[in-house]
C-alpha cells in the first residue's frame, strides 16, 4: 500500500514538474533558447505573490491571477528588450544572458528577502486531501497536476488553432520564411516567452504553496524542468508532460525506499535516457 501511495504522490509531483517544464519546452521549441533563469523566474513569481498577499487585501487566488498577468507582461518585455538582442550576438549569448539573469535574480531576491525560507499560506487548503484508504491525494497536488494538464492542452490548442500559434511553429521550422510571409519574429517570439513566463509563474506559486521556498531554489526547479523536457523527448509538449511524470515517479518511488536517494534517482533516469536514447535529443538540435 505504501508503494501505491508513492506512485500516486509521484504522479502529483510529476504534474508540478511538467508545469515547470512546459514553458522551458515551448521556448526551446520556438526559439531554440534554453532559459537558464526559468526556475528563478518562478521563484520571483512566488515572492511577488507573497508580497501581494501580505501587503494588500488580495486573497491568494487573486494574487495568483495578478502575478500570472504580471509575469506574462514581464515575459513579453524580457524577450523584446534582452533575449531578442542576444539572439543575434552569437550562439553563446542567450546562454550567457539567461545565466547572468539567473545569478542576478537569485542574489537580488536574497538581498531583498534574506535567505530565509518562506511559504505561500493557503490556509486549510494547504493540508486538505482526499483520503482513499492509505492513499492521500492532496488538493494542492491535484491543483498542480490539473494546472499542468490545462496549461499543456491550452498551449497545444493555441499552437494549432490560432494564427500567432501557427506562426510560432512556422518560425521554429524556418524563421526567415516566417518573416517572408509577414510575421514580425520579435512579436511572435515575445508572445512565446510571455506564455512561458506565465506558466512558470503558476508553477512557482503552486510550489510555494506546497513547500517552503527560498531565493536559490530556482536552480533545482530549472534542473528538474530540464530533465523532464529531455526525458520526454524534445519538441513535444505531450512528451514534456510524460517526462515530468516519469521524473516525479522516479523520485517518489526511490524516495519511498530511501528519501536520501530520491533526487539522485531523477538525475540517473535523465542520464539513462541520455545514454540509451540520444538520437531524439540530437535530432531536435539540428536545423
Amino acid at each position: 500500500m505504501g508503494l501505491l501511495n508513492a506512485v500516486v504522490q509521484g504522479v502529483l509531483l510529476g504534474g508540478l514538474y511538467a508545469l515547470y517544464a512546459a514553458g522551458l519546452s515551448l521556448m526551446f521549441g520556438v526559439m531554440r533558447i534554453v532559459n537558464l533563469a526559468h526556475g528563478d523566474l518562478g521563484v520571483v513569481a512566488a515572492y511577488v505573490a507573497l508580497v501581494l498577499v501580505t501587503h494588500t487585501f488580495l486573497p491568494v487566488w487573486a494574487a495568483v491571477v495578478v502575478t500570472v498577468l504580471l509575469s506574462a507582461v514581464a515575459g513579453y518585455l524580457l524577450q523584446r528588450l534582452l533575449l531578442q538582442r542576444s539572439l543575434s550576438s552569437g550562439p553563446l549569448a542567450t546562454l550567457l544572458v539567461t545565466f547572468g539573469l539567473s545569478v542576478i535574480l537569485q542574489n537580488v531576491l536574497q538581498e531583498l528577502f534574506s535567505a530565509d525560507t518562506r511559504s505561500l499560506d493557503t490556509g486549510t487548503f494547504a493540508t486538505a486531501a482526499i483520503h482513499l484508504g492509505e492513499i492521500s491525494v492532496s488538493y494542492l497536488g491535484l491543483l498542480g497536476l490539473g494546472l499542468a494538464l490545462a496549461t499543456i492542452v491550452g498551449v497545444q490548442l493555441y499552437l494549432s488553432r490560432t494564427a500567432t500559434g501557427r506562426m510560432m511553429r512556422a518560425a521554429s521550422d524556418d524563421p526567415e520564411v516566417a518573416t517572408l510571409v509577414g510575421a514580425d519574429a520579435r512579436h511572435v517570439y515575445a508572445v512565446a516567452t510571455s506564455i512561458a513566463l506565465a506558466s512558470v509563474a503558476l508553477a512557482g506559486m503552486v510550489f510555494a504553496m506546497r513547500s517552503s521556498f527560498s531565493p536559490t531554489i530556482g536552480s533545482m526547479s530549472l534542473i528538474f524542468a530540464f530533465e523532464a523536457v529531455v526525458i520526454g523527448g524534445l519538441g513535444s509538449l505531450w512528451g514534456t508532460l510524460l517526462g515530468g511524470l516519469g521524473l516525479g515517479l522516479a523520485q517518489s518511488i526511490v524516495g519511498y525506499y530511501d528519501p536520501a536517494d530520491s533526487i539522485l534517482a531523477g538525475h540517473l533516469l535523465f542520464l539513462a535516457v541520455l545514454a540509451l536514447r540520444p538520437q531524439g535529443i540530437l535530432a531536435a538540435r539540428g536545423t
Binding site: R166, M167, A170, D173, D174, E176, A178, L180, V181, A183
Partner: peptide
C-alpha cells in the same frame, strides 16, 4: 510576397496550415 528559392515550406505544418500562414497579414 515571396516564393523563396528551394520552396522552403514549413515542414512540420500541414499543407493547409502552410497556406494559412500566408494569410497572416
Amino acid at each position: 510576397a515571396s516564393v523563396p528559392e528551394g520552396r522552403r515550406l514549413f515542414g512540420s505544418l500541414t499543407v493547409e496550415e502552410n497556406l494559412r500562414t500566408g494569410a497572416y497579414r
